[in-house]
């Protein structure tokens, strides 16, 4: 049994979405994670909570609010409308924004953890070696946080690939635009095309397993060169 044109289109769209979301999230999450890992501000707890919200909220709730917020009458949607930008819901760009919100904790948290775990010491050492704050960040903090970034990228990617509720709420089911893999499987099941659904589901299971196995293998290997420990 082969993949249909629609299946391939959905796979391609899913990969495109996940790659884009992951890249954008890695950039957005870095300052958030850095701030959360170092601050002593009272704002840390509420910001942490906001970042973690998608972990506990039903995706439909998230999708619902995003739909309202980004819609033509929503707070952000109206503003975009004024600027002459097309509305985000039911478009690929809307899907990107929604996925970023949905996958945010999966990217912020591993990076934040990596920054916290390295502690102040390596940065202090670098400071005594005439390394400026920016130089310290690039040449000490980032390399030491590499396993955290790896986990973040893998989890962010995998999680975006697997989302369903939010996509359906904000993206709908438009072929080539918002019909991602999980929605495609749902469609197959609705249409009682169990064979197609099986094939795509199996692909997802294999993908999830490979990604996680790779993640753990890499994490184990890089432990010795990134933990500051007693060195």
């Amino acid at each position: 049994m082969l993949l249909s044109a629609g299946d391939i289109e959905a796979i391609w769209l899913t990969i495109k979405l996940a790659v884009l979301v992951t890249l954008l999230l890695l950039i957005v999450s870095t300052p958030i994670a850095w701030w959360l890992a170092r601050t002593g501000s009272w704002l840390k707890a509420p910001i942490n909570a906001i970042v973690a919200m998608p972990l506990v909220l039903p995706p439909t709730v998230l999708g619902f609010y995003l739909l309202i917020f980004l819609g033509p009458d929503g707070a952000l949607g109206a503003r975009l409308n004024q600027l002459g930008l097309s509305p985000l819901p039911f478009s690929f760009r809307g899907l990107v924004v929604a996925s970023m919100v949905y996958s945010l904790p999966f990217v912020v948290q591993p990076i934040q953890q990596a920054f916290s775990a390295m502690g102040q010491r390596p940065l202090e050492v670098a400071a005594t070696l005439r390394s400026s704050p920016w130089d310290r960040f690039i040449h000490v903090a980032l390399p030491l946080a590499k396993p955290g970034y790896l986990s973040a990228a893998v989890l962010g990617f995998a999680h975006t690939v697997g989302e369903f509720g939010v996509v359906l709420m904000i993206g709908g089911n438009i072929e080539g635009e918002t019909r991602v893999l999980s929605v495609q499987i749902y469609d197959h099941v609705e249409a009682l095309e169990y064979g197609q659904a099986h094939l795509l589901s199996l692909l997802m299971v294999a993908f999830a397993f490979c990604v996680l196995a790779l993640l753990y293998a890499v994490q184990k290997r890089s432990n010795s060169t990134t933990s500051i420990g007693p060195y």
Binding site: V125, P143, T225, S227, I228, Y231
Partner: peptide, 8 residues
Amino acid sequence: QEASLFPH
């Protein structure tokens, strides 16, 4: 006190 070499 501890050497604190960059482990990477």
